[in-house]
Amino acid sequence: MVTVRVYVTLKPELLDSAGRTVADSLHRLGFEEVADVRVGRMIELKLESFDEARVKEMSDRLLANPVIEDFRFEAVS
């Protein structure tokens, strides 16, 4: 079994309003050094076999929406 983590993030040019809310909240807690926050999603897959092209296809077709999001993935075990 291979564990693969897919990280999905909003494209950098798009306003991440959830991220902005988190940044505001961190500021209120006294973490003034926070300049920006982007919130993404991590999806962990357990695969019987790891084929990079197939994980890319899964990400392209369902896990991420390439119109608004970027993704990357890594095998962690």
Binding site: L14, S17, N65, V67, I68
Partner: peptide
């Protein structure tokens, strides 16, 4: 319809959350 690719673009969390 956007997710299905029948329309362009996408819909994100409202600007003011």
């Amino acid at each position: 319809l956007c997710e299905a690719g029948l329309l362009p673009g996408g819909l994100l969390l409202n600007r003011d959350q």
